[in-house]
């Protein structure tokens, strides 16, 4: 119950400030541009290119959404207000996380237009599209947890954004940099890439390992954020 009230408040904050609309606009512009740039050249009726871009675009869009969640409260002192309400740090973290997740879903909804457009041009296979959106929500959740964690470490929103972006980029790119790692730990590093797991789901194959991966990342970083704010003095 407490979590829901906190989530509602954060969502209201998101949508009453212009930042929400700016972020959504930028997200739609960038994805739309990159997607349709190559769409007509490829001549394939699929959203694969769109979903292929998502991990990179999410890496800087989602930390921009989550950067204010804690940093702003620390900077303004309103953190004291939340912490002295009858709520636990876990309520606060989960409430803020859910609000970010709802926001990400709201951001993804307009991109259904891409799917509809593509289906007009050719025979679109809806399986991978549904898988892609499911993966996008999971990926968004994982990155939101990372961004929230970064925000819980600092009172400066810009630092929160940069730290969040770095972590998200690292997870996106780690399986593309495998040549740099010694063979002994190669297996581990190829498994921790968010991109790899996202592509699996986006193919339309729901594997418990991928679900476990995203669930694990979300849990780990939310737990980290909870510890971080519980220790704030």
């Amino acid at each position: 119950m407490q979590t829901l009230h906190l989530m509602k408040k954060e969502l209201k904050d998101f949508f009453t400030s212009p930042i929400a609309y700016i972020v959504i606009a930028i997200f739609l512009l960038v994805t739309g541009w990159f997607f349709f740039l190559t769409f007509f050249l490829n001549g394939q009726a699929s959203l694969r290119d769109f979903f292929g871009l998502l991990p990179l675009i999410f890496s800087f869009v989602i930390p921009a959404i989550t950067m204010r969640l804690f940093a702003e409260e620390f900077a303004m002192g309103s953190f004291e207000v939340v912490m002295t309400l009858p709520v636990t740090p876990r309520h606060i973290v989960v409430g803020k996380f859910l609000s970010a997740l709802v926001f990400i879903c709201a951001m993804l909804i307009p991109t259904f237009a891409y799917a509809v457009t593509v289906s007009l041009f050719g025979d679109l296979d809806w399986g991978p599209v549904i898988g892609g959106y499911a993966g996008a929500v999971l990926l968004g959740g994982a990155f939101a947890a990372i961004g929230l964690f970064a925000s819980s470490l600092t009172r400066n929103q810009i630092i929160a954004f940069i730290m969040g972006t770095l972590l998200c980029f690292a997870l996106t790119l780690v399986d593309k940099l495998l040549v740099f790692f010694p063979t002994a730990i190669l297996g581990f590093f190829s498994q921790i890439g968010a991109d790899y797991h996202f592509r699996n789901i986006a193919r339309g194959v729901i594997d418990s390992r991928d679900l476990l991966y995203f669930g694990g990342v979300i849990f780990l970083f939310l737990y980290g954020a909870t510890l971080s704010i519980a220790e704030k003095e």
Partner: peptide, 26 residues
């Protein structure tokens, strides 16, 4: 609890803020 210099959410309306507090306080 009233914190020093009342650091409240600047973007919220007074009414919304009181509603929110009332909700969280059950």
């Amino acid at each position: 609890y009233l914190p020093e210099s009342a650091p409240l959410y600047p973007n919220m309306l007074v009414y919304d803020f009181l509603c929110y507090t009332a909700d969280v306080r059950g």
